Amino acid sequence: MDIEQYRAYCLQKPGVTEGFPFDDKVLVFKVMGKMFALVDVDAFESVNLKCDPELAVELRERYDGAVLPGYHMNKKHWNTVLMDGTVGDKLVYEWIDHSYDLVVAGLPKKLREELQNM
């Protein structure tokens, strides 16, 4: 997967926007204003994805060295996934889905309903 495939996959989800809220290198994807994915656009060496805390620990153990605690993020709720080919594209897409779904589940009911109507 390259950065354009990653970007396209994130953007095809309902309610998703992208932007550079921190600097001109870190592209952030949000659903209804809440972050679910981040990537360095210059390097595309890794991506940050939100994750259920128990699953986050399991993935870090299972993919030791390829899935790490979220860089510059809450280590309990975010993973950094190295994009060096160790983890296949299919899994990365599944983890993007998981991150998106986790954030959507935490949205207020009104925003979830609005999202369903998009």
Rank of each mutant, 00 (worst) to 15 (best):
C10Y: 03
E113Q: 15
W95H: 04
T80R: 02
E94N: 11
W95Y: 01
Y6K: 08
L68A: 04
Y63I: 02
G65I: 02
D64I: 09
M83G: 00
I96M: 08
Q116C: 13
L91W: 11
I96E: 01
D101F: 07
V81Y: 00
N74T: 02
Y100C: 01
V28K: 06
S99K: 05
D101C: 13
Y6E: 04
W95E: 03
D40M: 06
L27E: 09
V26P: 00
L59A: 05
F36C: 02
M83A: 10
T17I: 14
E61D: 15
P69K: 05
R60D: 05
D24Y: 03
M35V: 11
A105Q: 14
A8F: 10
L82G: 00
Y63G: 01
K75V: 01
D40A: 10
A43R: 14
K76E: 10
V57K: 14
K25A: 09
G33L: 09
L115K: 04
L49M: 00
L91V: 10
T17D: 15
K90F: 09
L82I: 11
D101A: 11
A105T: 10
L55C: 08
F44L: 08
E61F: 12
D40K: 06
E113K: 15
N117W: 12
T86L: 13
V28M: 13
D42R: 13
N74S: 04
E18C: 06
K50C: 05
V47F: 06
K90W: 11
Y63P: 05
D101Q: 15
V92R: 06
D84K: 12
A66F: 15
N48W: 10
P21K: 13
L102K: 08
C51Y: 02
Q116S: 14
F29E: 06
M73W: 06
K13V: 02
I96Q: 00
I96N: 03
L27Q: 09
V39Q: 02
L38D: 00
E4N: 15
K13R: 09
K13W: 01
Y93R: 14
V57N: 11
Y71N: 07
M35E: 09
R60P: 01
G85I: 08
K30P: 06
E58H: 10
A8T: 14
L111W: 15
